[in-house]
Nucleic acid binder design. Structure first.
Lengths: 350, 350
DNA sequence: CTGTTAGCGCATTCAA
DNA sequence: TTGAATGCGCTAACAG
């Protein structure tokens, strides 16, 4: 007792790192016994176990996970590579992910790729170096996917679907279709899309549905945004460019925006030009972030909870079952959240 | 060469973990020599080094950081505990932090405390278990600070100042004062504050400056918000409650909000009641997040870059220099960013 | 310049 | 039920 008290004091002063060996000495047992107690091995004498626990409590011992990882070849860590944090949707995703991981005894090692494939690969290398048990990738594109699939570390791609890897994505085509059909159902006849790339699945779904329903969609109804603008909140500039170009010839009455921030920026730009949202033009955003909630913008809602849970479960499954059959592709269904734009209130109150 | 080719193939198939020992065999050197090459030890024969690097390249070897950490008692990781992600300000902070850390060869281990001191302590325990070299804490309150200060792991508190620990905070009192003086300078005579707790330093600075300038500030000019409302985007409810209570007796013409989201929610609530911002009431937010930028709300800007850099440098300093004198407290100066509310545009265009 | 040896802290045999 | 011995993959001290 006295000796343990003593060490305890020393601990608080100099705080040299303490190990199982010290605990063992103080509890008058061997180091493996301490290990057994900590890992809940029942084959330990009750008295001894109590002594060990008491000492652990007193000195505040915490096992060294680096040693555990080395020994067990298992770190209880999963690496998560994300592309950006400017979109609150990803932040929410990560938040949920950490919660789920924590509940299951895992830590998250989070790295941002900033949409840069080189950094993404760097992240993966780092994950490997740090012995993660699995990886969750929000991909920058196709660039590293195949390499990752060859890595033998269980990995799953989240938010998008990929051929070579397990993936949990959203049915973007369906989302686009849903918006188009909503617009059509509301009686609209001329449409527009704002986004960075025409290859976007949601644009494809949107455009297809429009054409399938016998309506027209030509190139200048695609309002193009630079990637770099989007990342730096400068999409406003691109929108202005477009509006300046078309002048008064705005011939669409509804717009689908690739994300909520873009939607809001469009609404602002339009409003300043005397175009009333939603009276003149209605707008639907994407991601259903709190921005959409706060500003009352209709938006495509991604089932974050379900996506995170599905992704994590899939990863756990891969961790436990060695067998690696074909990559699984899961496509989640989005929903359309309709809102009355608060902006409308601002616009019409006078 | 042939043997290395062979192992390479096996690697791609079964992908058993490869170690320095294997590299050594393939390169016909001893394992420590491989280590020397990897760590840039110049005392290695050039030929041998080349062979080693070639093999490493071929098999894609990445050193096991768990082993390195165990051996060096250094993980090149810093633990970061944050309180929330709902506020984009913290997200920006973390983003910058990861960038700075990466540049210096460090990884971030990020854990969210969700404003819960118990989780915060859990985070710290986890950081210790994972052998972080240092910690950066965005505190949930006072609760764990003293315990942390006794831990011997270099730690610095960020965004707030604390007595017992190195800390890099913001001069909140100054911020409040600055806003009050701005309001006064603009000719306002009756003021309000929206936030969760009257103990808030920025409220203190705000109120003090008002009183010092001979104006009045009584209790019902503090618009109270529940912590839980703020965390769940339900501050609107509290604001409505307040506005309902006072009815038409709104006697203030300017409001200082504890963060940008609150500011926006107030503006919305007020606008819907026919109160024009900024004609009837002007509003200043806090954090200068993109929300404020997008919506054109005036806001107190925190020097994120400087804060992150200062915090990181301080931590590095503590890591390198064993000596631990008194805790250092650094207070950064905020600035007031003035904007013309876009909401105003929406409100007045008709 | 390089190989041999030792040991970081832990979990896991294997005996006893 | 327990302790002694071993080794996870790596770095560092020491010979040579």
């Amino acid at each position: 007792m006295i000796s343990s008290e003593c060490v305890f004091r020393i601990e608080r002063e100099t705080m040299m790192k303490i190990t199982m060996k010290e605990i063992a000495e103080l509890a008058k047992v061997s180091q493996p016994t301490v290990s057994r107690v900590i890992n809940g091995n029942k084959t330990v004498n009750e008295e001894a176990a109590k002594r060990v626990l008491k000492v652990i409590e007193e000195v505040g011992f915490i096992p060294n996970k680096a040693a555990q990882t080395l020994k067990r070849s298992r770190s209880n860590t999963i690496g998560v590579s994300i592309t950006e944090t400017y979109n609150p949707y990803f932040v929410e995703l990560i938040d949920h992910l950490e919660g789920v991981a924590r509940k299951n005894g895992f830590s998250i090692l989070l790295h941002n790729s900033n949409r840069n494939p080189i950094l993404e690969w760097e992240n993966v290398q780092n994950f490997i170096a740090r012995q993660v048990d699995g990886m969750i990738i929000i991909p920058t594109g196709e660039y590293n996917i195949e390499r990752i699939s060859k890595l033998s570390i269980p990995s799953v791609v989240m938010t998008q679907n990929r051929k070579h890897l397990d993936s949990v994505g959203l049915d973007h085509v369906f989302a686009g279709k849903m918006v188009a059909e909503k617009f059509i159902h509301l009686g609209h006849k001329s449409f527009a899309f704002i986004g960075t790339k025409p290859s976007d699945d949601k644009f494809y779904g949107f455009k297809s549905a429009i054409i399938e329903n016998g309506f027209h969609f030509d190139e200048n109804q695609f309002i193009p945004l630079e990637e770099s603008s989007v990342n730096n909140f400068l999409m406003r500039r691109d929108i202005e460019n477009y509006l300046n170009k078309v002048g008064n010839n705005i011939d669409f009455t509804c717009v689908f925006a690739a994300n909520d921030i873009i939607a809001l920026e469009f609404i602002k730009a339009a409003s300043e030009r005397g175009i009333n949202v939603p009276d003149d033009i209605i707008v639907v955003g994407f991601d259903d972030t709190y921005l959409a909630k706060i500003m009352g913008i209709s938006s495509i809602h991604q089932p974050i909870d379900e996506m995170v849970k599905t992704t994590f479960d899939l990863l756990m499954d891969r961790l436990e079952n060695e067998v690696h059959p074909e990559p699984i592709q899961i496509k989640l269904k989005p929903t359309l959240i309709e809102r009355n734009s608060y902006l409308n209130v601002f616009l019409t109150q006078k």
